[in-house]
Design a binder for these strands. Structure first.
Lengths: 343, 343
DNA sequence: TGACATGATCGAAACGTTTAGATTAGCGTT
DNA sequence: AACGCTAATCTAAACGTTTCGATCATGTCA
């Protein structure tokens, strides 16, 4: 900018005024300055600007795994929203690890991001400290966190799983295996509650042997399913509370020589692009990914636009049960599956 | 830092020296400074540091669509690699649009990223200008670009498609439909060449009516497949040069009342996590995603470590044909598919 | 004892912006 | 002719670091 100013024989203040439109500058000088900018190929240094202005027009986004299709879509939507608003997005993947997440949020705050969207943070106390220390707005995604009072957008997980399990019960299933993710994040808590309540509402017992835990990965789903299938009285249906794990479930079913839905019904959380392309077409709980991402982005953009003091806003969106053909009515002949799908 | 210096009754220079270890500071002062840092909760401002140092420890990464499973994986691997190295990653999605990509690269350069990994840039001239203007190292991914001399990691696309098409020919297919992405990026060019050469090597004609173009999206694959299937003499196999488009292909086959592989064989580019879970299990060309991402990251990290003047390095990795059961031997009875899979 | 090397510490400039406040020029009023 | 008003422009101080060169005390050696 100094060089531009010299070349145009004006002060840097005038150059700045022209570039930012913060003051009127005469047509004559404007022209000289614009010419100089072109000649020199000047580009404003955003770092210096950030230092002075105290704002980077960059936000931080952390997700556990970008390869989980739910987060892939959420990241995509959020990235687009902020791109439109002229913000850059720094992406971090926490690998479901709390320490990693801590480090990464620190990394982002060091770089003075203007705001933070964090998905699936683990511990309330740590998060609270972060939110308080950082003077930037934070929106929580996919997880509520007691004691942390900030904008939040989550799914009504309990209700969603309740509906899914109730659907299985309606089909006649009585022993329904449930594969949960680790319990230290609220969605897994709520989903489990939904499972329990659906069973109880139908007067069915909640049996511990039918509940397994995994760490969100395919291999965990595989192992959990193997255990469920080798039970003395094995379940007739399995619900996986997380999408990557259901891949393991399907592989385990195949490896053990069973097939879905003939021998065992399967449903899971989170829809994915191929769900209605191949066989069996998985029955899933679809999250309104686009809405979730956009709401989160809007909440943060609103704060960034200056609305700092509004009370925390908590959004809970509804999931939708996508009924396909991976669950069969129990007791009914196999041919009845087609009808149950159109129901 | 100023406050820390005052609290510890030393100069800012000494604080800086201690933090960075750039000079020895006496145990006594060290202790006072560290105490002050704790008391105040001081965190070094990375923006001010970047301004002074001319380096942000941040890189820019642009991909067309993060929802394309190939790019999802690549982004994941690259993010991890840079995270390990203490770099932040700014992610941009270009939506296959050259102007968008241009804007985003500018956005990233404005923010003084230390390096750039760009996947699928369109035009050689524009890219060349960008690479030259930006004084930062650039790694090209998934695309070669004539006239732009910089580090590159790509797949041997031509060979990969050649192998896939040859496989179909070996199965007895003679009319093989081909769905390409837009032609303005080199992989699509090379893949098409692979298609052509495989046909020619087998003495088969290259028929224009069997070749369709789409813009990488599911809907494009759907439309292209509809056209192919309504040809007077319809193909017995379809190869899709891009992964999202193959979803459209499968849906079109279903909607038209045919089934795969009984009526029509299907193969495509890019593997995905569910490919061997559901039926039909798609035969795909798997890119070594992990290697591609890691190589790209390593090339850039090497440049960032100071190796600026080494000549441009061009890596071409090999794809792998994952033979499953979505392609059937032509003329053979249906039961023969199983054998062909194990072949 | 004086000169000098050594090691610790500091002062101040620089990185490239923004912006408050000062200065100047032009012009209409009285 | 003196005054005030407005619009255009400039000067200079910040933003929070790093770093060069200067300063100063201390100890060593001739």
């Amino acid at each position: 900018m100094l060089h531009v100013a010299e070349a145009a024989r004006v002060s840097v203040a005038t150059v700045s005024a022209l570039i930012n439109g913060t003051a009127t500058v005469s047509p004559e000088l404007s022209q000289r300055i614009e010419q100089a900018i072109r000649d020199i190929g000047y580009k404003r240094n955003a770092i210096a600007r950030s230092l002075k202005m105290g704002t980077t027009r960059t936000i931080g986004l952390t997700v556990p795994h970008i390869t989980n299709p739910f987060f892939t879509d959420v990241v995509s939507v959020i990235q687009q929203a902020f791109d439109r608003a002229g913000y850059a997005v720094m992406l971090c993947c926490t690998d479901e690890d709390l320490n990693t997440q801590d480090d990464q949020i620190r990394l982002l705050l060091d770089r003075m991001v203007d705001g933070l969207i964090v998905a699936r943070v683990g511990d309330g106390a740590i998060l609270k400290r972060i939110v308080d220390d950082a003077k930037v707005p934070v929106v929580l995604l996919d997880r509520v966190c007691e004691g942390v009072d900030t904008d939040t957008v989550v799914l009504d997980n309990q209700r969603a799983v309740f509906d899914a399990i109730s659907y299985l019960i309606d089909l006649g299933h009585r022993r329904i295996g449930y594969i949960s993710g680790s319990f230290d994040i609220s969605p897994m808590h709520d989903r489990m509650t939904g499972y329990r309540e659906a069973l109880q509402a139908a007067g069915l017992p909640v049996e511990n042997e039918l509940v397994r835990f995994g760490n969100f990965h395919e291999v965990d789903g595989y192992n959990a399913t193997m255990q469920l299938l080798s039970l003395h009285d094995r379940p007739s249906a399995i619900f996986s509370a997380n999408n990557p794990m259901v891949i393991g479930t399907m592989k385990a079913i195949r490896d053990i020589g069973l097939s879905c839905p003939e021998d065992i019904s399967v449903a899971c959380f989170d829809d994915f692009p191929w769900s209605d392309v191949f066989q069996p077409q998985l029955t899933t709980v679809a999250q309104p990914v686009k809405a979730i991402g956009e709401q989160a982005a809007n909440l943060l953009l609103d704060r960034l636009a200056g609305n700092r003091d509004a009370p925390p806003r908590k959004l809970a969106l509804k999931g939708r049960l996508m009924i396909r053909n991976s669950c069969r009515p129990l007791g009914a002949p196999l041919g009845a599956i087609a009808q149950s799908v159109s129901a």
